[in-house]
Structure formats: structure tokens, C-alpha cells
């Protein structure tokens, strides 16, 4: 049963991820991105992380995608003009696909050792809001604060690059 749902959501996620970059209509791309985010959220639930799934849907599929849609509509983007299929694109697709298959084969071929972190028991309070809050604001307080400066740098950088004339 678990395998069935995993494959279902994984296929949906990969398919809609591909559609995001293959669709020529930007609105359709955004819609498929929402679907991809929902499918990933479902995978989080299966990994015993319901809080992450909820946040994923509220923040990404909700707030950020609305912004995306607004921007697409405000800019009034029409269909993207493309130069068709070139030899370079085919080679690129083959190389990228080849690397993906190679990594998949390597990862599949490795037997998980018994002492590895993959096979440890989950703690009882795993994935609850309380345990996430505790680790975020006690153990991982410093990374949390660094992330805020990372975002500050990104905001200032975006303003610097996007504004027509700085003064």
C-alpha cells in the first residue's frame, strides 16, 4: 500500500515537474508547479512529517504561487517563442538523462548497511510541531539566524538588480 502511494505521488511530482519546463504557456507552467508542490507535500506526509507537508502547501502552493500567478498576469506574458529542436538540445537531453540513469543505478546498487542512519528508529515525538519548534529555536538557533541574513542579502540584491535607477 505504501509503495503504491509512493509511486503514485512520485510519478505525479516528476510528471508535473517536467510539464513546468515543457509547457509553452506560462500560466499552465505555474499550475503544474502547484501540482508538483502538492505531490511533494504528500510525500512528506508519508515520511511522517505532516507539519512540513502543511507548511509546504500553505507557504509554497498557497502564498508563493499566488505571487507567481500575479506576476505572470501583470507582465501579460504570451507564449514563449522557441527555436525548435536543435542538435545541441538533443545532446543535452541525452547527457542529462544518462547522468540521471547512472546516479539511479549507483544508488539502487548500494545495499544499506545495518548501522546506517537510514535504518534508525524514529524518535517518538518525530515530526510534531513541538519538536520542530524546539530544534529550530534551541539547537538550530544559529542556522535559523544565518538564514535571516541570507534572505536579507537576497532581498537587497534583488532590489539592486531590479530597480531601474538606484538613488
Amino acid at each position: 500500500m505504501e509503495t503504491f502511494f509512493f509511486i503514485l505521488f512520485a510519478v505525479v511530482a516528476i510528471f508535473s515537474g517536467l510539464m513546468v519546463i515543457l509547457k509553452k504557456n506560462p500560466i499552465a507552467s505555474v499550475m503544474f508547479l502547484i501540482l508538483a508542490l502538492f505531490a511533494t507535500a504528500a510525500l512528506y506526509v508519508m515520511l511522517m512529517a505532516p507539519f512540513m507537508a502543511a507548511i509546504q502547501i500553505i507557504v509554497y502552493a498557497g502564498a508563493i504561487m499566488v505571487l507567481f500567478l500575479f506576476v505572470v498576469m501583470l507582465l501579460n506574458l504570451s507564449k514563449i517563442q522557441e527555436g525548435g529542436v536543435s542538435a545541441l538540445k538533443i545532446i543535452g537531453a541525452l547527457v542529462a538523462g544518462g547522468i540521471m540513469v547512472a546516479i539511479a543505478v549507483v544508488v539502487r546498487s548500494i545495499a544499506i548497511p545495518a548501522d546506517s542512519g537510514f535504518l534508525r528508529e524514529l524518535p517518538a515525538e518525530y515530526g510534531t510541531v513541538e519538536s520542530i519548534g524546539r530544534s529550530m529555536f534551541i539547537t538550530y538557533l544559529l542556522p535559523f539566524e544565518i538564514a535571516s541574513f541570507l534572505l536579507l542579502a537576497a532581498i537587497i540584491g534583488a532590489v539592486v538588480l531590479a530597480k531601474k535607477k538606484l538613488e
Binding site: I146, F149, L150, A153, A154, I156, G157, V160, L161
Partner: peptide
């Protein structure tokens, strides 16, 4: 990432 984002800009 903090370093890289600053450098991109």
C-alpha cells in the same frame, strides 16, 4: 549560500 547570493549580485 549567503556568500554566493552576494557574489551573484
Amino acid at each position: 549560500e549567503t556568500m554566493s547570493i552576494c557574489l551573484y549580485v
